[in-house]
Design a protein around this nucleic acid. Structure first.
Lengths: 353, 353
DNA sequence: TTGAAAGCGCTAACAT
DNA sequence: ATGTTAGCGCTTTCAA
């Protein structure tokens, strides 16, 4: 590999403008104590020479790296990519993250780390030592992994925890899981449903519990029973099908089901169909995630949209300002919304009643 | 922002192992001229202290940046992310790119650049100056933008051109567009089709032309006419619908259509349906891309799968070796495959014949 | 408000 | 086979 040196350095600019390196540095970093005339002169040289500071050099001399790391679960992410089922979490993350980073001259880099693994700390430590990011965005389930949060805290690197409400270091953020579940439940209640089932996500994700809470509270507010109506899955298709089967085989089976992921809802749809139930006539369905596939099922799925891009964007913004402004000490909430589609309707009136 | 310094540096390791910095450096970079015993001793210190070299420092002292840049068209990429239609190009790129980079201690970073823009050079120049990547992967339409390829060549940065066969600097790579189109056409011919239409992509993508070639050659090999049977779109839904309408309104309309993107094929499917044609009974359809949505249409679409992950992986591998081995001077071809699904069948026998 | 000097962590070039 | 020296491009002291 040819030894590649910066073609235009701060030295060239300084020489060109006839000032010291330091003055150029001050202009680059927008520091005070530079007269306007001087600033203009230096800027002119910068523009004309097409000078752009080397991030490596900036980082070396103790300044920032202008890098935000987005940490994702390796196993799940790769599985999603391989499965090609339209899960666009990473895309939405990049949409919110990259664009917001770019606004401030930062870049976002995706890093995959195994959570369920004894060398998480080594992996993350290596990434941080090599890259020296100015901030880290943790996505579930990393957000709640103390090995990760403690290490980041110890290293004194600002980080955001998406999908975590716990106190402690780092910015806690949620997409309002409880509120979203309530939103979905209320929608069904207003349509006239009384038996509403729920298929939760895995228990090692706190947000699984929050969603159950939202559903239960909405039901309780109308004095409705939720006994036996809560199933569990792991967000995947198989687990969704099993949970759906259980709920739909109940003597007094639900007239509507909310499932915590698109794959589980899709599984519920297929399970219902296999049992001869028509959606939405005999069973209404609301999904969580709103990934691309929900528009292609028949009927299209009413779904809770997770504001991933907006959440990551907010996280990045706060991380970049982590030096200046003080960080919030209560969880930052970015709320989702309900996208109505064809899988929800009023329950069929029971003629035998 | 707290002034963050590397906690364990090469100095610490050197002191710990009782050797010079240089020896540690040699061990890190796996250079020759280090005795096994010495190497083991140093490695032991490295492991024990948890030392990881700072990429910034490595880059500064003239070595690599261990960074590969993947350059995508800004407008199209953001539009795809926003549209949430399941386009998983970036995901497949990361799948192939990140994992292969990781194998060699590199990272991949996605960078968005406007092609149709007069400051492409400034944008790219800035990214390169700031990041100093060891290699760049160009995706269409960047791969054929001389402003970009010339700049990279001038800067002496190794790069791969995905979807380009032209000679010149950089590694030319294709996903065998001509062969894939031929594959699709042959499949239809074997099913008995004789009138096969083709909806091409925009003419500023060379691969659009290669696909037309593949289709035409396959048709010509059987002495079949292609006159009037070639439509054009821009890969998007709207353009696909228009092209489909034209083809299907022909007096002697095709019994099968190959379209150059999933969105255009989806549009063709809907157009056909609106015209009362049943797929595949009255019209067979083959798509290009094989993104997640093709499995959710009714019927599911037979499609050409583009080996994006594999192509990017190959590109990365060659870029990383760009110093050692010599680069190929003929285009590197990674072939796609045909995924048979429900949208293809033998043409209905014309009873009136 | 500006400049000069020192050093960040590492590697290349040159010793030994 | 190992050590020493110089310097990458920049920012942080500190001085003027």
């Amino acid at each position: 590999m040819a030894r590649r040196r910066q073609s235009v350095t701060i030295k060239h600019v300084a020489a060109d403008a006839g000032v010291s390196l330091q003055t150029v540095s001050r202009v680059i970093n927008n520091e005070p104590n530079v007269r306007e005339a001087m600033k203009a002169r230096v800027q002119e040289s910068i523009d004309r020479l097409g000078y752009v500071p080397s991030i490596a050099a900036q980082r070396m001399s103790g300044s920032r790296s202008y890098l935000i790391l987005a940490l994702n679960d390796r196993e799940r992410t790769i599985a999603d990519w391989r499965a090609r089922q339209g899960t666009d979490w990473v895309d939405q993350m990049l949409l919110g993250g990259m664009l917001t980073c770019a606004e401030f001259g930062y870049r976002m880099m995706v890093e995959l780390v195994d959570t369920h693994n004894d060398h998480v700390e080594r992996e993350l430590g290596a990434a941080v030592a090599a890259l020296q990011p100015d901030g880290v965005v943790l996505t579930p389930p990393h957000s709640e992994n103390p090995l990760i949060t403690n290490l980041l805290a110890k290293l004194d690197i600002p980080f955001a925890r998406i999908g975590s409400k716990e106190e402690g270091p780092g910015i806690a953020m949620t997409m309002d899981d409880e509120g979203s579940a309530k939103l979905a439940t209320d929608h069904l209640l207003e349509l006239g449903h009384k038996r509403i089932g729920f298929i939760a996500g895995p228990s090692d994700y706190s947000l699984s519990g929050w969603r159950i809470d939202g559903w239960q509270k909405a039901m309780a507010a109308r004095g409705l029973d939720t006994h036996n109506l809560c199933g569990r899955g792991d967000f995947g298709f198989q687990s969704g099908a099993e949970a759906a089967r259980k709920l739909l085989r109940l003597d007094d089976r639900p007239t509507a089901i909310i499932a915590s992921s698109d794959q589980m809802t899709l599984a519920t749809l297929e399970t219902a169909r296999a049992m001869g139930l028509s959606v939405p006539r005999e069973l209404s369905l609301i999904s969580f995630d709103n990934t691309p596939i929900v528009r292609f099922t028949d009927p299209a799925l009413t779904a809770i949209d997770q504001p991933i891009a907006e959440t990551i964007s907010t996280a990045v913004r706060m991380l970049i300002n982590a030096n200046g402004e003080e960080l919030p000490d209560t969880p930052v909430v970015v709320s989702g919304s309900l996208q109505e589609r064809g899988s929800t309707a009023s329950p069929r009136v029971d003629v035998s009643a």
